[in-house]
Nucleic acid binder design. Structure first.
Lengths: 156, 156
DNA sequence: TATTGTTATACTCTATAACTATA
DNA sequence: TATAGTTATAGAGTATAACAATA
């Protein structure tokens, strides 16, 4: 066997930056974000605004703060996001009848329209992004990512 | 077949934000970045600095600009990055003997030491990050991400 | 006193433009 | 003139702190 351990790979220069998982995740995320941004642009919203519309459509209208928390963004950021969406006529804000500190945020008809079209555009971008993979691989990718981020849900 | 298209899913509120690929990628990337940052902290470097050290160890020492380009960052950002690394005594800058505009950037002994320890810490963080997956799933994840990123390499 | 929305402020990160020294 | 490094500056994005209204 002639001691193969004597010369260990002490130089180890061949560690390719391109193969590091962090690098792969970052660039994959960035690429999808670019495709999505391009797809959304014609509909007059960006990715974050679209996410807010989506969150509004998904849940019952509660307070700005809950929406912000659901999206993992600061409440002060939510204020300016909603300012923009309100200016664009996509959402409305009304004081909550039972607790006038809170704002009930709702989609307007235009907001619902924009959401539907923007969502289709995003779906399309996602499909193009995933086109190098077959259906089964894409499924496995989603499963793997879900498993990987599951642990962090326990902390907060 | 009884026209299943008549009542299309027009409400469609159940679209879960948490299942969107962009969301999954973003949070997976963020989680690994956090784990890596924590793992690197005791060694006195952050993720970007470590990436620079890695790039320096991997390639022959050319110019700052080539390293910057390889890492996909701006050359002005590279200047301040190297300033910090030089202050920490991890790299040295010398004018290139044949072209004195260029800087030859090299790892010091301490830089090589730090790189080795930091890389082990990163490997460990990556292992912990991937622990919800078995070996085959982790392999497939890497393969899928590489396939997804491949298209963008053709543009530049 | 605690909470919601808001505003003003500061901070981080990064890119742009301009300058120097070399070629 | 073109390029490598540097510097100063500006911009986007986001978080922190303070304030008013309400509970």
């Amino acid at each position: 066997m002639s001691n193969a351990n004597d010369e260990r790979p002490r130089q180890r220069p061949a560690r390719e930056l391109n193969s590091l998982l962090g690098h792969l995740l970052k660039h994959a995320q960035r690429r999808l974000a670019e495709l999505t941004a391009t797809a959304l642009a014609p509909h007059g919203v960006d990715g974050k605004e679209w996410a807010v519309l989506l969150a509004l459509a998904a849940g019952d209208p509660t307070s700005q703060q809950r929406i912000a928390h659901r999206l993992g963004i600061d409440r002060t950021t939510m204020v300016s996001l909603l300012d923009v969406l309100e200016t664009k006529g996509l959402v409305t804000r009304h004081p909550h009848p039972e607790d006038r500190r809170r704002n009930v945020v709702e989609l307007t008809t235009g907001g619902r329209d924009t959401l539907e079209r923007a969502t289709e555009a995003c779906d399309d971008a996602e499909r193009r992004f995933l086109s190098p993979l077959d259906h089964r691989q894409a499924q496995q990718l989603g499963d793997a990512l879900r498993a990987l981020i599951a642990p962090e849900r326990q902390d907060p």
